[in-house]
Design a protein around this nucleic acid. Structure first.
Length: 897
RNA sequence: GCCGAAGUGGCGGAACAGGCAGACGCGCACGACUCAAAAUCGUGUUCCUUCGGGAUUGUGGGUUCAAUUCCCACCUUCGGCACCA
């Protein structure tokens, strides 16, 4: 097969892209979820058909809408609607969750991704935050001094877009939304330390965002460059590469296809840290995130090789290749249509063809140009290059399959061993010279396709006979040998290329942190002096529907004087990408009102680094990569310590609507946490969110399912508050032993599951234990020390999950010392968890045929003889001796007949 | 094409380190209470069955006394990257 195969765009794929686009237009929840966040959506939706969709779902939504919120729990005194706000107020008054430095205790910095103040807390926020809160509470009970802060990622486009529509100033809208969301966040009963709150749009905060920009600028990590950048025509701003999504190349926020524009923009030199960002040593992050980041950085190893023009031996054309072992097979060279040398090398005869091709390439969008199924096109430049390894004269072509943005914008084409080059050579009838002979085929006829695989180098001068394989880089003996030789000959050297690009941070918008730079004709660009920070956003701005940044249109704001010479100068009117604000917010929590620097070092030394970070995976190649870069840059500036800001990362999944689709207002499948809290209480909602799915997977919401959690909560309440001690009988000793065993087994599991973020099994363990406690109560356990211990431990285990009901029972019903949230996490009594008598299944030929009951510490021999003595086993043995008997002590006996 | 993840009852899910598959919950069925309903409580609930059993963790192989778990191949779904030289 010759020409690159056509890859028809399937219906499925089109649908997927459309869905992606649609999703991109949706509101953001935590930080800035993007279509990437749909990951879990479709997985879950696809996993189990969509059977339960419409009727029931509509019924439920209708019911929720119609019903005025009212307590569902009737006839008993459990009343979360009263009890929860009461405790929230008391905890706040008592500053129960204030975290201050305490050198006598180990610290634990639990961070959850800060929300964007969209106006309403979404169920997704609850899903991310309440289990994180429960875990932070657990850590606190374990004796850690826990910092669990909250803030708002308050700059950003939605507020500005809304302002263009209705004229309400983003500042006003944002701070109103924050006020509203604070109330909602409080209703979660979370242990946020509100005194550490930060708001990124607050001048007190963005002063330091600007300050960091200048730091990076002074380190040479911020630079201004004219380049072809991605532009979202709807949001009227440039975007970072990370914010352009998928093969359709749409805006991460609004789903509009981006276009290219040549603009001067500010960049951060993130690529300087590419190699370091590939190293995840010392951090416990999900493999998935590490893989995404690794792929995003896209390191490839190879060599750069110096060709020169036939017409000018002093010229140098550098190419990058991952296959230096195929250098002898280079039969032509291809330049990108944007290559700067083109004008110089094109011959007069070819000029018109080349110019026409360049024009055509420039007119095409990236999508058209990079379409996979497009047939290769190109034009001969008339020029020839000399291959330095064998001094062959090879023609130079231009083709749009070579990108200026990767490598050097010029390639050596080896059609015999590269599919793209092969297709191109076939089309334009260029020579194909095999230089790797497959080990299997001794004499192969004319190549039908590019050969990529193990083999022996041929037609390769001094390297004939050298073995090559498919390994990349120096691990491949052929490549290693050629690289060494290139370096010795001075015609090339080992080299690494990355897909990763520098971070474009300029945004042509108003509602962001100003880029604190000033331009004057004499001294060029200079940073605003530190004592003049922050550069404040002007408040009196006009909203024009043109979409132009009001900063640009403001009559006076941009006028200033040059900090170097005092000449008239203008301010940069672009603002910073909001991901810049969120790259360091975890540092501002340490001392949100500190004014001598971005943070107080004393606080830093105590709290940093972040011990656990929780949030959505949609930020894998955006926020989570930016913040790592930022930390490393600050480390090199001597501002931070250590190589990584966040030691452990865990991602929650996504809560879908009941119709198994992503929740959205337009679909009408949104589950509002406020409604749920009014109806069931925060404790129930918290518990259900922890219970109803694996936290890292997420699942569709199930409004029936929550009933189980409602029942559980009620049963908890009744067990602890119902004074009836039903049994007159004295409990059997084994009842109490069993109760105690169950309690400690549960404690062991719950402790382990909290450590591992396995929240669903925490709840099921607690449900199980409650069922056992009901039975024990029936059996007369009430009033015994074992019963009291069970009660105490149960509440302590419940406290992180359902902080209000646990406090109410502990403090008010049981009159224990306030607060349960200041109690120590109980210790597992290992001895109590052990069973005395165990039931062991006996397998005969792999099938369970009998069960025997033996003492837990019975020896293998005892177990063996008990098993062989059992009737069922004797039946299968039919009097014969077993071939083999395996005893897994305490677990199982396996008899082979 | 490359890289990664997942697949267990009607549903969400459980199974610590290879050892009883289906914990816990939803739903459903039956029963108790009730004039009745709701709520609550109790019992049952993977499938097939000739009631002896048999099958069963996406499919097919393999290792093992024993596999949801380890290995190989494949299928499906999801995600990321992609004319990346």
């Amino acid at each position: 097969m010759a020409i690159a195969k056509k890859k028809p765009v399937t219906k499925k794929k089109t649908a997927r892209v459309a869905a992606k686009k649609a999703a991109a237009a949706k509101k953001r929840t935590t930080l800035k979820p993007s279509p990437k966040g749909k990951a879990t959506v479709k997985m879950a939706a696809a996993k189990k058909g969509v059977k339960r969709a419409a009727p029931k779902f509509e019924r439920v939504v209708a019911a929720i809408k119609a019903e005025p919120p009212q307590p569902v729990v009737k006839n008993i005194s459990y009343n979360p609607q009263v009890m929860e706000p009461k405790w929230q107020a008391k905890w706040e008054k008592d500053k129960l969750y204030r975290s201050v430095i305490d050198n006598s205790r180990p610290k634990h910095y639990a961070l959850t991704m800060l929300p964007y103040p969209s106006g309403d807390l979404h169920i997704g926020h609850w899903y991310a935050m309440t289990p994180s809160d429960a875990r932070a509470r657990f850590k606190r009970m374990q004796g850690f001094n826990v910092l669990f802060p909250i803030g708002f990622d308050a700059f950003g486009l939605p507020a500005e877009n809304a302002a263009i529509k209705d004229g309400v100033h983003p500042m006003k809208r944002t701070f109103q939304n924050i006020e509203r969301m604070r109330k909602q966040l409080r209703s979660m009963g979370s242990m946020f330390d509100w005194e550490r709150q930060m708001v990124s749009a607050d001048p007190e905060y963005y002063k330091w965002t600007e300050w960091f920009f200048i730091k990076l600028y002074k380190m040479g990590l911020a630079y201004r460059k004219l380049s072809a950048v991605d532009w979202c025509p709807k949001d009227n701003t440039t975007l970072a590469r990370e914010q352009v999504i998928g093969e359709e190349r749409v805006c991460e926020r609004c789903g509009t296809p981006v276009i290219k524009k040549d603009l001067e923009q500010w960049f951060f030199k993130a690529t300087k840290y590419a190699d370091e960002l590939l190293n995840f040593d010392g951090i416990d992050w999900p493999e998935r995130v590490k893989t995404l980041q690794t792929n995003w950085i896209g390191r490839s190893e190879g060599a750069e090789v110096y060709f020169h023009l036939e017409s000018d031996p002093s010229s140098v054309i550098t190419v990058f290749t991952t296959r230096p072992d195929t250098l002898w097979g280079a039969t032509f060279m291809v330049f990108s249509p944007e290559h700067p040398m083109l004008d110089k090398i094109t011959t007069p005869e070819q000029r018109s063809a080349v110019d026409a091709y360049k024009l055509q390439a420039a007119r095409q969008s990236d999508i058209e140009r990079e379409a996979l199924d497009k047939e290769k096109t190109g034009v001969f430049t008339g020029a020839y290059a000399i291959n330095p390894v064998n001094h062959e004269r090879i023609p130079i072509w231009i083709a749009d399959y070579v990108l200026m943005s990767y490598g050097t914008g010029a390639i050596m084409a080896v059609p015999a061993h590269d599919e793209r080059d092969f297709a191109f050579a076939r089309k334009y009838d260029l020579p194909v010279i095999p230089v790797i002979r497959p080990l299997s085929a001794e004499d192969s006829g004319p190549l039908q396709a590019a050969y990529i695989g193990d083999g022996v180098m041929v037609n390769s001068g001094p390297f004939n006979g050298t073995q090559v394989n498919t390994e990349k880089g120096r691990k491949n003996p052929g490549i290693a040998a050629v690289i060494d030789w290139l370096e010795k000959e001075g015609i090339g050297k080992e080299s690494v290329n990355y897909r990763y690009r520098d971070w474009l941070i300029s945004r042509q918008r108003y509602w962001g942190a100003p880029i604190p730079m000033v331009y004057c004709d004499v001294h060029g660009w200079n940073p605003v002096p530190e004592d003049q920070l922050p550069v404040l956003l002007p408040e009196n701005v006009e909203w024009k529907p043109t979409g132009e940044s009001p900063l640009k249109l403001h009559p006076t704001w941009k006028n200033t004087t040059c900090p170097v010479g005092g000449e008239p100068a203008v301010r940069e009117t672009d603002t910073m990408d909001t991901f810049m604000c969120s790259s360091w917010y975890h540092l501002r929590y340490l001392s949100p009102h500190y004014d001598k620097g971005p943070f107080d070092e004393v606080e830093y030394n105590y709290w940093m680094p972040v011990d656990t970070y929780t949030g959505g995976i949609e930020h894998a190649t955006m926020h989570l990569l930016y913040t790592r870069f930022f930390h490393k840059a600050l480390r090199d500036a001597g501002i931070t310590e250590g190589n990584e800001p966040m030691l452990q990362l865990r991602n929650q999944g996504m809560v879908l609507g009941e119709d198994h689709e992503k929740m959205s207002k337009s679909r009408g499948n949104v589950v509002a946490p406020d409604v749920l809290v009014n109806k069931y209480g925060a404790d129930t909602v918290r518990a259900y969110l922890m219970f109803f799915a694996r936290w890292d997977m997420g699942a569709p919401w199930d409004s029936q399912g929550i009933e189980g959690t409602v029942r559980w909560m009620r049963r908890v309440w009744i067990l602890f508050t119902d004074p009836v001690a039903p049994a007159m009988l004295k409990p059997q000793p084994d009842v109490l032993r069993n109760l105690r065993r169950k309690v400690h087994q549960t404690l062991k599991r719950v402790t382990r599951d909290f450590e591992n973020f396995e929240f669903n099994t925490i709840i099921s363990s607690l449900m199980e234990l409650l069922n056992e406690m009901y039975k024990a109560r029936e059996a007369g356990a009430v009033g015994t020390p074992e019963w009291d211990e069970a009660n105490e431990l149960y509440l302590k285990m419940l406290a992180p999950v359902c902080p209000h009901i646990a406090e109410e029972i502990w403090t008010n019903q049981m009159c224990k010392p306030y607060s349960i949230h200041q109690q120590a996490w109980p210790r597992v009594d290992e001895a109590a968890t052990k069973e005395e008598v165990i039931e062991i299944p006996v397998q005969v030929n792999g099938k369970v045929r009998a069960r025997i009951i033996v003492a837990a510490e019975a020896s293998e021999d005892e177990i063996k003889s008990a098993a062989l003595a059992s009737e069922a086993v004797r039946k299968y043995l039919e009097g014969k001796e077993p071939k083999k008997v395996i005893v897994a002590k305490g677990r199982l006996v396996s008899v082979v007949v």
